[in-house]
Simulated scan of single mutants.
Amino acid sequence: MTSEYTSLDSLIEDPGRRRFLGFGAAAGAVLAAAAVVPSAARAAAKAKAASLDECLSLSQQQMAARAPAVKQGMAYLRSAANTVRDAKARAVVTALLDDPVPSLAGPLADAGNRRAVYDELVGQGLLKDVAFEAFLPPVAEGGRASQPFMSSTGSGWTSHHAYPGGLVTHTAANLHISEAIYASYKDVYGFALDRDTVVVSQMLHDLHKPWVFQWEGSGACRTELSLAGTGEHHVLGVAESIVRGVPARMVVAQACAHNHPGSPADEAQVVGWLKAASIIVGVDPEKAGLLAPGGATLPLPRRMEGFVCHLGDHDWVFTVPAAKAMIAELGDLAKERYGIDDVSASSKHFNNFRNYVFSQATIESLYETYAVKGRAGFASAVAGVVRPA
């Protein structure tokens, strides 16, 4: 059985070449797990279309739990986590996939600590135009995770992978890209990067999206604020990795997801994110091995894994415009065939319909159908998920 989540290694028939390219037993474990999960596209096609009332009654967690691509993606991510050799990093990744609790938020529950961190970030120019009351996302009662990793959207409400389970499909796609880069460097240049760092940095790069993009009563998700010049999820995720004891080289690579250290201006952004994360959790980034002495650059010489993490986090180049196009098309279709007149961002009726359709079929697959088969093909694919009214 083939799988949409098939690594480059599985396409190579010559055993000697596979040993040269592959990840060895680690890759075999990932591929074996992926192979037993049915193709998400085939599974979605075989699934019985839901009624409009049924899909409107489901929570985001229930939608994600029945979504073929999300289930397949989670199986792949769990298998990849099990191949990490560093015991501490493996434990952290596995724990966050199971329960993405924002442990960094504990000390910040104290108003004095929170104010001190806020003031230092503002004083260093790392936090702008965010009121103290809005600093950090709300924390669930008892410090619990706001939602499972599996049910989180992959980004903001009008951006990439904006559906329940989108974080899983986004992370899985990125990890496949990173694995392919790892393999290509081994094939073309004849050297192996630190595979643990490649895998862990990519798997953790969006670890706090479940906290940042909490689902709201409207069926949409919370609006993300800025921190150190990027989406707050990025800095908070880096801070969480520091708190949980992820090795410094992996944290540095994770911080490179949103930019690379290839020029002084670009590297300055990464340095700022590491400084902001360090302020939040109260560590000295130089002593922690996150920055070079003096704090102006990443540790020298700069490791390649950070560049790979950045390159791997580029599925958004396609998926952002795909999301914008599919949201608009689904809004038109909702009016024409499903009797949903209000398709605004505040419409719970439309948002729940949208969440169900996109979680089961994925925005990305729907866009491919739309691009190849046009609007009629898109409408037919949606009808296969939710029966028209």
Rank of each mutant, 00 (worst) to 15 (best):
V117R: 00
V117L: 12
Y118N: 14
Y118E: 13
Y118I: 06
Y118F: 14
Y118R: 07
E120Y: 06
E120R: 15
L121E: 15
L121S: 14
V122T: 15
V122H: 11
Q124Y: 12
G125D: 10
G125F: 03
L126F: 09
L126I: 11
L126A: 08
L126C: 11
L127C: 13
L127T: 13
K128F: 05
K128L: 08
K128G: 02
K128H: 12
D129Q: 08
V130I: 10
V130F: 04
V130D: 07
A131D: 12
A131M: 01
F132L: 06
F132N: 07
F132W: 09
E133Y: 01
E133A: 14
A134S: 13
A134R: 12
F135M: 01
F135E: 08
F135V: 01
L136I: 10
L136C: 10
P137D: 03
P137F: 02
P137W: 02
P138W: 03
P138A: 02
V139N: 07
V139D: 06
A140N: 02
A140P: 03
A140S: 10
A140G: 01
E141R: 10
E141A: 14
E141I: 06
E141P: 08
E141L: 10
G142T: 08
G143I: 11
R144F: 03
R144H: 14
R144T: 12
A145N: 04
A145T: 04
A145M: 13
A145V: 08
A145E: 06
S146Q: 06
S146D: 13
Q147M: 03
Q147D: 02
P148A: 00
P148R: 00
P148F: 00
F149L: 00
F149K: 01
M150E: 15
S151G: 05
S151D: 05
S152F: 02
S152I: 03
S152V: 02
T153N: 13
T153A: 14
T153S: 12
T153L: 12
G154D: 14
G154N: 09
S155F: 10
S155T: 06
S155K: 09
S155V: 04
S155C: 10
G156V: 09
G156C: 09
G156T: 11
W157Y: 14
T158Q: 11
S159W: 06
S159A: 05
H161E: 06
H161A: 03
H161C: 04
H161G: 06
A162I: 03
A162F: 04
Y163A: 03
Y163C: 07
Y163R: 11
Y163P: 07
